[in-house]
Nucleic acid binder design. Sequence first.
DNA 1: TTGCATGCAAATTTTTTGCAGCCAG
DNA 2: CTGGCTGCAAAAAATTTGCATGCAA
Lengths: 146, 146
Amino acid sequence: MIQIMKKEQQERKKQLHSMGSRATPGRLEVLSVLEKADRPLNVEEIKKRLKGDSLDQATVYRIINALRDGGLIRQIDFLKTHAYFELSDKHDHHHLICVQCQKIEDFTGCNFQSIVQKALKNSKQFKTVTQHSLELFGLCNTCSKK
Amino acid sequence: MIQIMKKEQQERKKQLHSMGSRATPGRLEVLSVLEKADRPLNVEEIKKRLKGDSLDQATVYRIINALRDGGLIRQIDFLKTHAYFELSDKHDHHHLICVQCQKIEDFTGCNFQSIVQKALKNSKQFKTVTQHSLELFGLCNTCSKK
DNA sequence: TTGCATGCAAATTTTTTGCAGCCAG
DNA sequence: CTGGCTGCAAAAAATTTGCATGCAA
């Protein structure tokens, strides 16, 4: 287990370096928090889950922005006023969100390659797509019974 | 032209009533602003485009939330800290967004019915999807040359 | 008439910024 | 070393709330 953790750490460091950033304890810990999370977290939630609330809020914001711009984490839209984040290496995985109780379920297989190809084929101003967002909103079984 | 405008007004009023809301001048005007917009707008932009900046900011927020919850407008995630909105009746239409210069291009044909069916088939907690978000992020031709 | 909508002002929440000191590379 | 990171404190931006008044249905 410890071995695995170390490998993951190494992997994170490489990723940070490849995006031209330094592998500081703060950044590694934010990544670790998101690694353990079972759902996307907002900035406040990330901050609270850090060991002893250790990082300054300004730092958390700066880290989040750097990681997002570097592509290590992904911003999710839950129709809230502020953003949520998750690791972007959980391959091609998206969410079903209940607009009533906010329940979140993952789903995979959005087959977006064909969507991207189609979109780019018809586009005059774009030739590459580096990321995408896809969320489905509805009512979960519990809420739809009410 | 005036005839057409009146028809649209009537349509809007019906939509508002069907979501259990009153058809006030403010709400109709917000819808009209979004109707004329060539791209999704944030709350501040909507407020500025109202005749003479007529509505209070608190009111604009309350209107936006009501229209979104009622399904008349759609919230778009541009990876910003705050949300953007557009009319939801522009059928099944999404965006290509340049992460560098924020250029926005529309694209259609996301064929999401098959995605939704697939997701629901594998879901234990959901049986219906009422809305979806799909945005593609990348670099536009101009920015990718830099 | 009557309860939903709005304006106004204030509070709260969320995000950003300047600057000095620190540490990963 | 040294330039990127961070903490601290303060400011700015975005969103919400309470209450009195007004208007759509």
